[in-house]
Design a protein around this nucleic acid. Structure first.
Lengths: 185, 185
DNA sequence: TAACGACCGGACACTACTGTCCGGTTAATT
DNA sequence: AATTAACCGGACAGTAGTGTCCGGTCGTTA
């Protein structure tokens, strides 16, 4: 039985369709942002609307599936020995430049949903370790919290989501420079 | 003839309706943000959709009329002797806490419209004086530009627009503190 | 007071999504 | 081969907002 065979109809199609939807959503969210129409995701996946909503009853379910990877990557980095706060922020920034959707939905959810709040807490939590170490080393101000950092990357994502993809990297650099050094000499 | 008399039908109603629309829009933009439905503005003004679109062919025309006041206030402050960059940023922040719409539309317009770009340039320009003075006094880093500042308040507005009105003032304070002192000790 | 015409209001056509429903397809089972 | 049941796709109803159109209203002018 050829591994590539994946009919998208019939009893055995479910898993494949689901995977196709997640992949399509990742792409669509990256190019059109977190608010992209879900119908575009179905089209991109080559799947009917019905299948989309059957697998993922709402936008958040789909987004959670899509960005589980992103947060897992962050958590893995946070768990690795020797990881600094800078490393974590660099990875978040990289992810945000590639797709603002993850941080957009997590940082300041428009309407607070328990699933999103939980994911935001995971992000805050994985930053804690690096933050504590940076604080002990005197690298950051003493009163800086993980929530502050989540809010900060949220601000970043808010701007980047409105900027053409080509301008994102330099804009992100500029904004981080403001956030880091502050505007005071 | 009583000064209060303002029929909203017939040949003499135009000016009054226009004023009512601007006032209503200011209120609606403040409470529901820059993306609020224009139909809500017409309803709030007690005026038909037709009148709204006759006076203001699109959202931007209406917004320009609404926020002309805000920018004029800023320009007046900038022109006053002894005004510092801090004074200007304080006023902008106050305006943003009251209504995120102005900065939202000006700082990083979703689709660049010449009228919005012109207004953003007015904001950047009025910041120039205070910024130059602050730079000479060594109060801000040497490479800080007015565009950076516009972007920074845009970030702020992006977050504040998603935060309940009651939380805005403290959130704005926290974010400015991050932007000003930077996250480095 | 009659005719005029500027201006109004809200119904409506249009567009863009979301989420549901059901006839139809297909693998599995016997 | 016939039967079954899981699952699919896309049509469709529902919802929300934008912008247009036209019958109707009301000051103005003669």
């Amino acid at each position: 039985m050829p591994a590539e065979r994946r009919p998208n109809r019939g009893p055995s199609a479910a898993a494949g369709n689901r995977a196709a939807l997640v992949a399509a959503a990742r792409e669509v969210f990256a190019t059109a942002g977190y608010d992209a129409p879900l119908s575009a995701v179905a089209r991109q996946a080559g799947v009917g609307q019905g299948s989309l909503y059957r697998h993922f009853p709402d936008r958040i379910s789909l987004a959670l599936a899509v960005f589980e990877d992103s947060i897992a990557e962050l958590e893995a980095l946070a768990a690795a020995p020797g990881t600094t706060l800078d490393d974590l922020l660099a990875l978040i920034t990289e992810q945000t430049v590639a797709s603002t959707a993850f941080i957009t939905m997590v940082s300041v959810p428009a309407r607070p949903d328990p699933r999103l709040l939980a994911m935001r807490d995971r992000v805050a939590k994985l930053l804690e370790g690096g933050l504590a170490r940076a604080r002990e080393a005197g690298l950051v101000r003493a009163d800086l919290t993980a929530d502050d950092l989540v809010l900060a990357v949220g601000m970043l994502a808010g701007v980047l989501s409105k900027v053409p993809a080509a301008d994102r990297l330099p804009t992100a650099g500029r904004l981080w420079s403001l956030l880091r050094q502050g505007i005071e000499a």
